[in-house]
């Protein structure tokens, strides 16, 4: 168990080192969540005049979405790194070493967690510049926690795809599914304001509940249990299902 932890940390450290050293990876991971926050809050701020918003600031409303998207990018990146490792042969090195199999997946997930904490911090700072302060201790921790949970979820998805496709060519599949999972939830407006197909789809989309929980924490500054537990349940279910999706191929790689 301790060995799994040590090796996971070692692999996570390597992933993060790569992020720092490769500008074409580092810059987007910093800029994309910022861009999403600014472009969304700037372009659509007028929508907050709808009664469903109850007078909330649209920037504050968007912060959880930007943090979640940033976490999604972090997760996708873990999958991409793994796909590159599989393609280039680095993964063979890991595979033929006695490193615990679990660590080969936990390492990249750990890297995604750290990166999502970083992007969430960036989003909070940008919010602060736009004069939206931190939502109190518990609110802030909840936003961080749910973003990191989403990073774990999306990295499980991307890692599962990478381990099956064994090719960077699978990148669009990793990305599109994560984008759509956020955009077909309640990315831009509260659920009551959605019309047509999206109001039904978002009801079934677990990301809706994660975003709702994060948003409730951001906007109220405390933990409103009735808004939080569906998010935790949704994140838990996604983690179990996609965790299995990521781990399964790991034990059949030699096939």
């Amino acid at each position: 168990m301790q060995r799994t932890l040590t090796v996971s940390l070692g692999l996570a450290g390597r992933n993060l080192l790569l992020v720092r050293r490769v500008p074409s990876v580092f810059i987007p991971s910093l800029v994309m969540p910022l861009f999403i926050l600014i472009a969304t809050a700037g372009a659509f701020r007028g929508i907050a005049a709808l009664p469903e918003f109850a007078g909330e600031s649209y920037l504050a409303f968007t912060i959880p979405m930007a943090a979640t998207m940033g976490a999604g990018f972090a997760g996708i990146n873990s999958g991409m790194t793994l796909a590159r490792d599989l393609e280039g042969g680095f993964f063979s090195r890991l595979q033929s070493s006695p490193a615990p199999r679990l660590a080969l997946v936990l390492g990249p997930i750990g890297a995604a967690l750290v990166r999502s904490a970083f992007t969430t911090t960036v989003v909070f700072i940008a919010g602060g510049i736009g004069s939206v302060g931190l939502p109190g201790l518990w609110g802030t921790l909840t936003v961080y926690g749910l973003a990191m949970a989403f990073a774990a979820i999306t990295s499980c998805w991307a890692i599962g795809v990478a381990l099956r496709a064994k090719s960077v060519q699978a990148a669009p599949l990793m990305q599109v599914v994560v984008f759509l999972s956020v955009f077909t939830s309640v990315a831009y407006v509260p659920q009551d304001a959605l019309t047509g197909w999206l109001s039904r789809v978002s009801e079934w989309n677990p990301v809706t509940y994660i975003l709702n929980a994060s948003r409730s924490a951001e906007l109220t500054g405390t933990i409103v249990w009735s808004e939080t537990w569906p998010g935790l349940v949704a994140a838990g279910i996604l983690l179990v299902v996609l965790g299995a999706f990521a781990l399964r191929p790991l034990f059949h790689l030699e096939r």
Binding site: G10, L17, L18, G89, F90, S97, P98, A99
Partner: peptide, 25 residues
């Protein structure tokens, strides 16, 4: 040491050796 010398171009030799040590516990 497999055919496609699979080595991260962005890491240093020392870093890779240490990482390999971690993998082997």
């Amino acid at each position: 040491a497999l055919q496609d010398a699979a080595i991260d171009p962005y890491m240093t030799g020392r870093e890779l050796l240490r990482l390999q040590g971690v993998l082997h516990g």
